[in-house]
């Protein structure tokens, strides 16, 4: 992959707390859901950064923060050096030309009362400077062709397409403004197995042809493995491990990553009786009231006194080659296959 050195997207200490309030007339804040609680990473030009985690880990809020759809409580998101986190109005609108979103559900992410031509062409209506008026229709058709749809279908409505085709329409809309970064929030998880591969391949081809950078957020570790160059693992609003895909998948250092990877079913029954499985007990704690110190300690088999007192920062640790947030990191290959 063409991941050149310079960072196109820089995220620093990003925090989003949703206040929990009580009272109808006089609102009193009684706490906060710490959806995203101090996340930092770089996305390099042309690379795909996968973000994995289970529901409630904050990965969807992260997507909204990256897109400037939510205002962060603290921290910064810079795209090509320009801050999106605090931007407003025209400035925010200009930045949005560089970062776009592909959403999960192809059935709800397209307005059912707009034609495909209007949906894919809407970015040009919002950003008239991006394409001269007379040229828009041709560009819309070129975009449809680019994502593998029939350009003659501009006058059809979303319900006339299958799920996979709709996801292509969503991708075409995301590409219209020629952004350099695309945030994919669970882009294939709503699709049938045999259609997922088509869309994953399309995203990979678009990246090659257009030099795009992806933040690929998903709960499906196998899909992320396939498409990502680097992977970040999230747990309760924190990044617990971050590294190249081969490192995170092949040499996971954080116990949560190991448990997560070992839980993924492998489509191969050979040796299934011998496969190592770390089954976590219970459910993740509430993000409104996370445990002190390391957030994973309540379900961790390695937890010691220090884990409750000190929060382990995400950093390079002895004996490992990538960053992890554990006081007792230990590389342990739970998949054991390459």
């Amino acid at each position: 992959m063409a991941a050149t050195g310079d960072a196109i997207l820089e995220v620093r200490d990003l925090v989003k707390h949703f206040p929990l309030t009580q009272g109808v007339v006089v609102r009193k804040q009684i706490g906060a859901v710490r959806a995203v609680d101090g996340i930092s990473f770089d996305l390099r030009r042309g690379e795909t950064l996968g973000i994995v985690g289970e529901s409630g880990c904050g990965k969807s809020t992260l997507a909204k923060l990256l897109m400037g759809l939510e205002r962060p409580t603290r921290g910064s998101v810079r795209i090509k050096g320009r801050e999106i986190a605090g931007a407003k109005g025209g400035e925010l609108k200009r930045i949005r030309r560089n970062i776009q979103l592909v959403m999960q559900d192809p059935y709800t992410s397209l307005n059912p009362r707009m034609t495909v031509g209007d949906i894919v062409g809407e970015p040009y209506e919002i950003h008239p400077e991006a394409a001269p008026k007379g040229d828009r229709r041709r560009r819309v058709q070129a975009l449809l062709e680019l994502v593998g749809l029939d350009p003659d279908h501009v006058n059809r409505y979303p319900h006339q397409f299958s799920g996979g085709q709709r996801q292509r329409i969503g991708i075409a809309r995301g590409l219209a403004l020629q952004p350099e970064v695309i945030v994919c929030d669970e882009p294939v998880s709503a699709l049938d197995v045999s259609i997922q591969a088509q869309v994953v391949n399309l995203l990979a081809r678009l990246q090659r042809d257009l030099g795009l950078s992806y933040v690929f957020i998903a709960h499906d570790l196998s899909v992320v493995r396939h498409i990502a160059d680097r992977v970040g693992v999230m747990y309760l609003g924190k990044m617990v491990e971050l590294g190249r895909d081969a490192e995170v998948y092949g040499q996971p250092a954080h116990p949560y990553t190991q448990a997560l990877l070992s839980a993924v079913p492998v489509p191969d029954p050979e040796g299934r009786e011998r496969r190592e499985r770390i089954v976590l007990r219970g459910d993740p704690p509430s993000p409104a009231n996370p445990p002190s110190g390391c957030r994973f300690r309540t379900r961790c088999w390695k937890a010691q006194e220090v884990c409750a007192q000190q929060e382990p920062p995400l950093q390079l640790r002895p004996g490992t080659w990538h960053e992890s947030a554990c006081h007792f990191p230990q590389i342990h290959d739970v998949i054991r296959a390459f």
Binding site: L69, K93, R97, T108, S109, N111, E122, I126, H127
Partner: peptide
């Protein structure tokens, strides 16, 4: 609350 409204906001729609 529909996703297509979120998508429009992400495009910078007023």
């Amino acid at each position: 609350g529909q996703d297509y409204v979120v998508a429009a906001r992400a495009l910078g729609a007023s």
